[in-house]
Design a protein around this nucleic acid. Structure first.
Lengths: 208, 208
DNA sequence: GTCTATATTAAGATAGAC
DNA sequence: GTCTATCTTAATATAGAC
């Protein structure tokens, strides 16, 4: 049974890596089990089916990420002046923390969220919003605090534009970073990418 | 042979609809041919293989869209003062024109472009940039004209952020419009969505 | 818990009659 | 050009021995 935990762990780690790289649909259980050096049948034994495995992988990230984001937003709350840039930078340390905990965690996490939005329609989105709705609400409140002029409609759209920017950028991050690194002299990584995104999003969120 | 053209046409139209809805990978030739009421083998007869069908579908949009965008940008060129908002609004009439030519053309087009970026790795992106590179260059020039302070790196990233925003928004447009219409009193459609996007992107592109 | 073997389903593609 | 029938491949999933 010691070996059992190992197997489950190995599966989840390889799955996470392949899901982020190729998406849920394009990652077969065969690819996962063969790369993890475990038997094909063990996925079904440990997780029941592929859908549950996907949720388990995403959940590992969410449980790490969401409480940290919540704390960051809480400490923002205490300040009197909050700029939009502050709000978006609240995402940075929870994200970079993922990079420490998991291999290339930050980009993989956003990728998984994005894939969850499009790949498997609905069920992951539902999972995230019902379980972590309070953190998302808190983020929304922080945005409003930073720009009280936003009416409900603008707020709605711009939050989704923001999500779209992050998700698409992460989904194409490998290709984009390759191009960037060959095109410009400086070395570009996920963190540099993040620093590029923040002013873009903050300005968009504050547009009149 | 009259029937032959009909078949080819029917295939391409159903394919376009299904590709936009579910993505390339999740749309089987069986689904296409059965919904188009044609024989399964006819796809291979008329297009050779699935990859070629995908390109044909996308190409129909590009050939309509790109020349129009080119003309819009050309007329922008002649002005002395060009704002970033002007540049993004240059996309509007080519896009809304797609809505007239094809059923829900604007959102489908952007969806297909987005899918081309992620779904099938590389080959569609290559196809677009090599065939319509001059139009894309012209767009880039217009952006620079509107904000000459952009260095090459910022420009690169922000153009991709822009693409990401559009693609993701369109990919989730059905769900988003549903929520928007139930949440707010006003009636929201793709054009209203576009009017929400432009100031967001323009501000982001002009951030310091 | 793990393995082999296999059931089942669905995909893309093609051969060959009409 | 179109159709039926079929090949090939690859996926998820499970049964049953160990």
């Amino acid at each position: 049974m010691g070996a059992g935990l190992d197997t489950k762990q190995k599966i989840i780690e390889v799955a996470e890596s392949l899901f982020a790289e190729k998406g849920f649909k394009d990652t077969s259980l065969r690819a996962i089990t063969s790369q993890a050096n475990v038997n094909l049948a063990s996925v079904n034994y440990h997780f029941g089916d592929k859908k549950t495995l996907i949720r388990a992988v995403l959940d590992r990230y969410l449980e790490e990420f969401m409480p940290l984001l919540d704390r960051e937003l809480e400490s923002l709350d205490l300040r009197s002046q909050v700029t939009m840039t502050d709000v978006f930078y609240a995402l940075k340390s929870p994200l970079t923390n993922l990079d420490k905990e998991f291999n290339r965690g930050a980009s993989r996490f956003l990728l998984l969220v994005g894939r969850g939005y499009s790949d498997v329609q609905g069920h992951l989105r539902w999972f995230i919003t019902t379980r972590y709705g309070h953190v998302l609400d808190r983020f929304t409140q922080a945005v409003i605090q930073a720009n009280p002029n936003l009416d409900k409609e603008k707020l709605f759209w711009r939050l989704h534009f923001t999500l779209g920017t992050c998700v698409f950028t992460m989904a194409s991050s490998e290709a984009l970073l390759d191009i960037a690194n060959s095109e410009f002299e400086i070395n570009t990584d996920v963190e540099a990418m993040f620093d590029q995104i923040v002013p873009f999003l903050a300005a968009g969120m504050c547009a009149d």
